Computed example of a mutant assay.
Amino acid sequence: MLATLTTLAVVTHPGPWAAGFGWVFFLIPLFWFLVIGLIIFLVTRGRRRAWADGADGPPWARGGSAESTLSERFAKGDIDETEYRARLEVLRANRPNA
């Protein structure tokens, strides 16, 4: 008798999918895709803003010229005066509007 009642309860119980809210479970992955996408968007937006200010970022985004980069290297002591003057002469000789 108990086995019959248990079988009847299992067979006739509608379960979560038959209740009409089964489609809600498909929104869970969509929610996490949106959260991860928002995090990626905010991180890249912050980096772009920092690069636009010139504080950090790749050398081509800093907005400096070749002569200013050469001057900075000379000021830091990376190159000596003769190398600085030689490279500066090459840069000025190869200007597009010269």
Score class of each variant (00 low, 15 high):
residue 1 M to F: 13
residue 2 L to I: 08
residue 3 A to F: 08
residue 3 A to R: 15
residue 4 T to M: 01
residue 4 T to H: 04
residue 5 L to E: 03
residue 6 T to L: 07
residue 8 L to K: 12
residue 9 A to C: 03
residue 9 A to E: 01
residue 11 V to C: 03
residue 12 T to G: 02
residue 12 T to I: 00
residue 13 H to F: 12
residue 13 H to T: 07
residue 15 G to A: 07
residue 16 P to Q: 06
residue 16 P to M: 02
residue 16 P to I: 07
residue 17 W to P: 11
residue 17 W to C: 07
residue 22 G to K: 08
residue 22 G to Y: 05
residue 22 G to L: 02
residue 23 W to C: 05
residue 24 V to G: 07
residue 24 V to C: 08
residue 25 F to C: 09
residue 26 F to R: 13
residue 27 L to K: 13
residue 27 L to H: 09
residue 29 P to N: 00
residue 30 L to A: 14
residue 36 I to S: 09
residue 36 I to H: 03
residue 37 G to I: 00
residue 37 G to S: 05
residue 38 L to T: 09
residue 38 L to Y: 10
residue 39 I to N: 08
residue 39 I to F: 08
residue 39 I to A: 12
residue 41 F to W: 07
residue 42 L to M: 08
residue 43 V to C: 09
residue 44 T to M: 07
residue 44 T to E: 05
residue 45 R to T: 10
residue 45 R to V: 00
residue 45 R to E: 03
residue 46 G to I: 05
residue 47 R to T: 01
residue 47 R to W: 02
residue 49 R to I: 01
residue 50 A to M: 14
residue 50 A to V: 11
residue 50 A to Q: 14
residue 52 A to P: 04
residue 54 G to T: 10
residue 54 G to H: 08
residue 56 D to L: 14
residue 57 G to P: 14
residue 58 P to E: 09
residue 58 P to Q: 09
residue 58 P to A: 10
residue 60 W to N: 15
residue 61 A to W: 03
residue 61 A to M: 07
residue 62 R to V: 04
residue 62 R to Y: 00
residue 62 R to K: 13
residue 63 G to R: 09
residue 63 G to Q: 04
residue 67 E to C: 06
residue 70 L to F: 02
residue 73 R to M: 04
residue 73 R to Q: 08
residue 75 A to M: 01
residue 75 A to G: 02
residue 76 K to G: 05
residue 78 D to S: 15
residue 79 I to K: 13
residue 80 D to N: 15
residue 80 D to C: 11
residue 81 E to C: 03
residue 81 E to L: 12
residue 82 T to E: 14
residue 82 T to S: 14
residue 82 T to I: 09
residue 83 E to C: 05
residue 83 E to W: 02
residue 84 Y to D: 03
residue 84 Y to I: 03
residue 86 A to Y: 03
residue 87 R to E: 09
residue 88 L to Q: 04
residue 89 E to K: 15
residue 89 E to Y: 13
residue 89 E to W: 09
residue 92 R to K: 15
residue 93 A to F: 01
residue 94 N to K: 13
residue 95 R to W: 01
residue 95 R to G: 14
residue 98 A to Q: 09
